[in-house]
Design a protein around this nucleic acid. Structure first.
Lengths: 339, 339
DNA sequence: AATAGATTTGAAATAGATTTCAAAAAATGC
DNA sequence: GCATTTTTTGAAATCTATTTCAAATCTATT
């Protein structure tokens, strides 16, 4: 069923049918009525593929995430989908699994499907020391490219999170509660967002004249086991920290589990601040205080930056949303006598 | 950059370039070499949209899930994506949020984009008493439709989970451990998969001559709060159950939390069996014993059923994978003296 | 070298919409 | 009622690849 079939039945030309569909030209009301009724009766739906071909726009945004099973990516990709839909764009989602070849293939696939823009969240695009070949690959696509991260040598736009502010907020909250021995669990330093958090952590120690215990910053995976291992290392220290900032909720649950395993109470013995504010923070005991993002704003910002680029507008090269603190039950006041 | 540009530069016809791309006709080796080098130098990628238009196939499968933030859907949609990619299909993902109008719109969108097949997981497609209008809508799309669920009056194919077997396995495990007061938390009876679990639960009581306490079957939401509320109701009973089968991991975590809150130990005081075996079962204390699915097989089965239908093969109307029990730490033997 | 047979190539049609441009129809003015 | 302006319409070109069919080229055979 095509516009030609509709046209024949309505005794008009395909052009007229097209005008009814697109709505960007006047058609005599009675004819429009007739055409619409024929379309409805035949269950006709215009072929979006043909529309894309002639229009030169696929109305599709390629969305590449590291792993949709990670609640952070799930929440964010969801908001991207909603924002895209509102702007009459579709999302084509791919998981990269931190596998370089899948990542490359997905980008090529987006290019072949003529995605109007690409949004990438996670993966190599936030490497502190980027792979030049990867940046070159992205550039070669010649498709507007937006990410929460930033890759050197890559023609791209960033709409992300103010990472330093995350640590500012967490640190300040703990400081107000009297904590001075604050640990960071930790993430991988090779990731830019993590690097920015670490440097801010160090900066804040200087600012407040708190001596840095380098053992308090522990590299870890972003998942449950990363948190467990990290916490175990912290617990083995002669003087253990009184508070831990975890790099993700997943990680925080691991920290919590390791603390519980040795009989420590959170927040009684150790306070814990998390990142991402996914549903995980609601299902632990205690519920986790943590850094929260406005996911709607973040997803919306990524999409609107992408769409601005599609429309040849010039959005800011970089924009960052400010995180907030979502206070729940995992932090407590401390009265240190020995400092 | 199109095949015409390549053709001009290589001094051949577009047909020849096309033959090199598609590989389904011989081209003189030296010409092919030349054409390939020109394509590479210009970073040429064939336009998948044009290929779809002429080929009459979009090589796209529409995937509609209830909510990607739910780890079950995330894990399954991931496997669908992988299986589709292996068969040279792409996935177009939409979230329906249990919102009927979003669901309808998404289906229409799939149709307009000429998805070759639609896979739906969750949402109205597993309603026990289906909405005839919804079934009619699906039928009107005239696109192969595959789901884990089943909707009356709908021309569709099911590749799902043997729900009765889930309960068989959970029940058997608990029975072997000596449990007789087994509760079900619970899900919504209006969902077919849940209904099948409930009926099996009742059947098994009959089979083993265990009296049914109707208070032990509690309807609930599938999430954390559903589990909490359900468990609170169970705990308020004069004789509380010794074991709970939760309808999802999310729900199980809620059950666990409610148990802990009143000082009950799991599995010391109460055993708990979950469903879905998502990462949640690994991050609780104790780790949750539960019903596990072969996600790769399930996702692969959904996709291969869809592709069989695309290729006019006739796959089975219904197929079900058999779940397994993943024994972790949330169930214990019980020595009941009072039964 | 001529012919038959096999291989390789190109012109043109096709997929299903949109858009431009000119023609036809309708509305307006006098 | 006729000329002029405005609105509505249709024919044809376009988007980018694939495929058919016939023509051209090459190889093999005698």
């Amino acid at each position: 069923m095509t516009i030609y079939d509709i046209a024949r039945e309505a005794k008009v030309s395909p052009s007229t049918v097209s005008r009814v569909i697109s709505g960007n030209a006047k058609v005599k009301p009675e004819k429009e009525e007739l055409i619409r009724s024929i379309m409805a009766r035949n269950n006709f739906r215009p072929n979006a593929i043909a529309q894309s071909l002639i229009g030169g726009q696929s109305k599709t945004i390629g969305l590449l995430v590291a792993d949709i099973r990670n609640p952070f990516y799930a929440a964010l990709s969801l908001e991207c989908e909603i924002a895209a839909k509102r702007a009459n764009y579709r999302v084509m989602l791919c998981n990269a699994f931190n596998d370089d070849s899948i990542e490359d293939d997905s980008l090529d696939m987006f290019a072949e499907h003529r995605a109007d823009a690409i949004i990438q969240i996670g993966c190599r695009v936030d490497d502190l020391v980027g792979d030049p070949a990867y940046a070159a690959h992205i550039n070669s696509l010649a498709i507007p490219f937006v990410s929460t991260g930033k890759l050197d040598g890559c023609n791209m736009y960033t709409y992300g999170i103010d990472n330093a502010a995350c640590i500012d907020i967490a640190f300040e909250h703990l400081r107000e509660l009297g904590h001075k021995r604050i640990a960071l669990s930790g993430g991988r330093l090779s990731v830019r967002s993590t690097y920015e958090k670490w440097t801010r952590y160090i900066y804040l120690h200087g600012k407040y004249g708190i001596p840095i215990n380098t053992n308090y910053v522990q590299e870890s995976h972003y998942d449950f086991n990363g948190g467990v291992e990290c916490m175990n290392r912290l617990l083995a220290l002669p003087e253990r920290p009184t508070a831990v900032i975890a790099i993700s909720d997943h990680c925080a649950v691991g920290v919590l589990s390791a603390a519980h395993k040795v009989g420590l109470s959170v927040p009684g013995d150790i306070s814990l601040i998390s990142h991402d504010n996914t549903f995980l923070t609601e299902i632990t005991a205690p519920r986790l205080t943590g850094i929260d993002y406005d996911y709607k704003k973040l997803g919306g910002g990524l999409v609107s930056t992408a769409i601005a680029l599609i429309n040849k507008k010039e959005p800011p090269r970089e924009a960052f949303i400010t995180p907030t603190l979502n206070v729940k039950d995992s932090c407590a006041k401390i009265y240190e006598t020995d400092v």
